[in-house]
């Protein structure tokens, strides 16, 4: 077999020969011992390269793959705005307390250092169903009872984040410390509402 024959055989194995050439090679493989041996060697090498990969692929476990990938992906470029997150978080009965919540957000965002809060919440804030300015409202001396709220004593935010604390009014309610992106120049989350849907 010369080099040209070898190349023809390679093309034959890939099914890339014209029909008449393929028929000629098939005839040679069937009748010529040298062609036959070369053909068998190439068939076998392909099988032996492929078999372990096929076997390993069949037992591959991709269960943790997505979690591993997702954990390393960068955060989406456009995150939900402050308003969107507040809208998502708040339910209609809370609308009455929004002004107080906004005031609390502004207060904690600009607060330079932890400061002891007043001993008791103001009556107005206490009436807010779900959001209240936690630093002030939550400082009543709480007994070590799980039904009492977590008390936020002080907040320092030196970066661009705004901290907003949602304190429960009902005993046993949930305390959530929100960490939100500060409003940006484009008005994302900070601008006054422009649609009827805006809760603030």
């Amino acid at each position: 077999m010369n080099d040209q024959d070898q190349e023809k055989l390679s093309l034959f194995l890939d099914g890339a020969l014209a029909p008449e050439d393929a028929a000629e090679v098939a005839r040679l493989v069937a009748t010529d011992p040298e062609w036959k041996a070369a053909h068998r060697a190439l068939k076998l090498s392909g099988e032996m390269m492929r078999a372990p990969v096929e076997q390993a692929a069949r037992s591959a476990n991709f269960d943790g793959l997505w979690a591993g990938i997702e954990g390393r992906l960068p955060a989406p470029e456009r995150a939900p705005s402050l308003l969107e997150r507040l809208r998502a978080f708040l339910t209609p009965p809370v609308l009455v307390g929004l002004a107080a919540a906004a005031a609390a957000a502004a207060y904690v965002a600009t607060r330079p250092a932890p400061t002891p809060a007043p001993a008791s919440p103001s009556p107005g804030l206490a009436a807010t169903p779900r959001i209240a300015p936690a630093p002030e409202s939550a400082l009543a001396a709480a007994p070590a009872d799980a039904s009492e709220p977590v008390v936020i004593e002080g907040i320092e935010s030196e970066g661009s984040k705004t901290v907003l604390v949602s304190q429960p009014v009902e005993p046993g309610g949930t305390t959530v410390i929100w960490l939100l992106d500060a409003p940006d120049a484009a008005g994302d989350g900070a601008a006054a509402p422009t649609t009827d849907d805006d809760p603030i």
């Binding site: 068998r40 076998l44 090498s45």
Partner: peptide, 28 residues
């Protein structure tokens, strides 16, 4: 591909010729 196969063929042919060519061919 042609180059690679030529090398592989050269590497395997002695075994095919010396050790049970018929059986190996059947496997392939």
């Amino acid at each position: 591909l042609h180059h690679a196969r030529k090398k592989l063929q050269v590497a395997l042919r002695p075994f095919l010729e010396e050790a049970g060519e018929r059986d190996l061919a059947d496997r392939a």
